[in-house]
Design a protein around this nucleic acid. Structure first.
Lengths: 336, 336
DNA sequence: GATGTTTGTGAAATCGTTTTCATTGATAAA
DNA sequence: TTTATCAATGAAAACGATTTCACAAACATC
């Protein structure tokens, strides 16, 4: 039925080995035979069977990309960059969505073993980051977005601590004093951004007011709605959200309450998603170099495959503060 | 090195065939042996080699998902739905981004053959839709988002013609008369929505004013900027954009020109992306049932695998018109 | 008691490649 | 001339699983 390398060999009048050599590895084949084989391939419409090739050659030419949810624009952008480079390098990508669920993470890591992937790019939850130091994988891993100091894997992350500090600093310079912080509770980024927020607030002699919530816009919306309902006196003058999902929830809650950004409440957060430019006066955000993160992660993975014993590297990229109207200078009449 | 089914068999004191039976197919194995095998699997840390399994069993348990760009929220949402169902059904998904490039489409279709996928879900460009009727694939295909009447594949699409008509109708009812249309030039959806727009405009006795542009927000932005620069007299009173990408470009151009939505220009379009709810007075859009599209496509593919000879089906889903402030009733003082 | 039938198991073939190893003829070196 | 080296090729093994086939034991039927 389906045409195999033997059929090609028969048509070309050579051995299967020779066909294989023409197709794949760079071994020398005489020009005459090479031409015969190529003709036979065209004539038969032969397509190599990648499963057979992987089995025999013992490399899968496949990497895994495990993220929380591809619908999150951050992961979408990173993922697209990863895929582009992977396909260029002749690698297949297996994409997995964990929904920040450690069980799914474990499931997919097992799947990666069964696929015999050559490597994995992984944005793990806090729980799994910790567990990975104990049970090493059978493949090299590059962590993205999330990692910790003691993780034994290559990683490429944002300077979360400094970036959160930049937001606090900016808001402070604009005259805000009562900035509250909403942080995702599933990832290490939430913690690091939280710590950066606390440190900066403390540095300015301000009272931190931070809360960890599930990483959904609904949770952020509910939290902000609650804070607004507490009344004007208790109300913060600015909100910082630790990622794009939360940020959207914040904006929704503010709009719904009929408040004005930044007059009633300033808003800032992480992830320069395209809508942040278009909403109200524009939302001030920390822009992550999403393509660079994807490209760097792939580059690190490829280098690791080349030199498995090189020392473990952790690349920290800087965020860029994109200032927009949502954090315009506070009106002095209302200043504390 | 890596532990194979033979190792497990040796440890369990049975034949490899028995191990295979315990692991995989539902053939009967005595309880005693089953327990021994399971113990041996645990003890050895055995992981099946999926390449070997695929080669021998001759089904890849893999489907392809070929879309223009996973960063487009429409495809992201559809893709996520597809992946969820696929993984549930024990199928792997290979994701490919074509960037609306027919050459990449051809490349990836060839890749699908080499992977021996069991099926493909595909959002093709116009060119490839046409070419596919000529050269049938070696695997069943479900087209999504894009198809044409004569395509010989299952398909699940939006009722583009009617949906575009709904937008025109709504704008007309709100008092708008000079609605221009921006349509993507790479896909059949652009054409169908264009035709629906023309039909509805004609029905109302209005002069259609439509343009096909590349499917990027930059192209839309440039086009609208150009139209605005032509001066108030020539200016349309409403803009319809045939997808979320174009819609974003439209909004950017309008904001940049300092015009007010809908006072100076009403805006409506396709794709209920989350930002459309938050921008200005909210943007009126046709919401596509994105999850349903993904789920339906997967369901159709699975059914097709079950019954290869069933007649070809084309499922047409309705869009929902989400009315927001961007198309509020036209002020009568300015009515034509 | 003789003869099917069913059930559980293992030996061996097989999937479609790549890789190892042997062979051949040609060329270089002694 | 003889021997060593090399390049090009084919035969056969191997990759790690599933599947086919054969067989024995247990059971049912007449």
């Amino acid at each position: 039925m389906t045409v195999s390398i033997k059929d090609v060999a028969r048509v070309a009048g050579v051995s299967p080995a020779t066909v294989s050599r023409v197709l794949g590895n760079g071994t020398v084949v005489s020009d005459a035979l090479r031409a015969q084989v190529e003709a036979a391939v065209r004539k038969t419409g032969y397509r190599p069977n990648l499963s057979a090739r992987r089995l025999r050659s013992r490399h899968s030419q496949t990497i895994g990309l495990i993220v929380a949810d591809i619908r999150n624009p951050f992961f979408t952008a990173v993922g697209r960059a990863v895929e582009d480079i992977a396909y260029q390098a002749g690698l297949r990508v297996i994409l997995c969505n964990t929904d920040e669920n450690p069980e799914k993470e474990a499931l997919y890591l097992r799947l990666m073993e069964e696929e015999r992937v050559t490597g994995v790019i992984f944005a793990p939850t806090r729980q799994t980051v910790d567990r990975m130091t104990e049970t090493p994988q059978s493949f090299p891993t590059v962590l993205i977005d999330r990692a910790c100091h003691r993780s034994q894997e290559d990683a490429v992350v944002l300077d979360n601590h400094a970036s959160a500090g930049m937001l606090v600093e900016h808001l402070h310079a604009q005259g805000y004093r009562r900035m509250i912080g909403l942080f995702g509770n599933a990832s290490t980024t939430g913690i690091e951004r939280h710590d950066g927020y606390i440190a900066a607030m403390t540095r300015f002699g301000l009272t931190p007011d931070a809360v960890f919530i599930p990483p959904t816009s609904e949770a952020a919306e509910a939290e902000v709605r609650r804070r607004i309902a507490e009344g004007v006196a208790a109300r913060p003058d600015a909100v910082i959200a630790s990622n794009g999902l939360l940020l959207m929830g914040v904006v929704r809650a503010v709009r719904e309450a009929g408040l004005v950004i930044p007059g009633d409440l300033a808003v800032a957060g992480f992830d320069n998603e395209r809508w942040t430019e278009l909403v109200g006066p524009g939302i001030t955000v920390i822009e992550q170099p999403v393509e660079a993160i994807g490209r760097t992660a792939m580059a690190m993975l490829l280098e690791r495959l080349d030199t498995p014993d090189a020392p473990i590297r952790k690349v920290v990229l800087n965020g860029r503060c994109v200032v927009r109207g949502s954090t315009a200078a506070r009106r002095t009449s209302r200043a504390v």
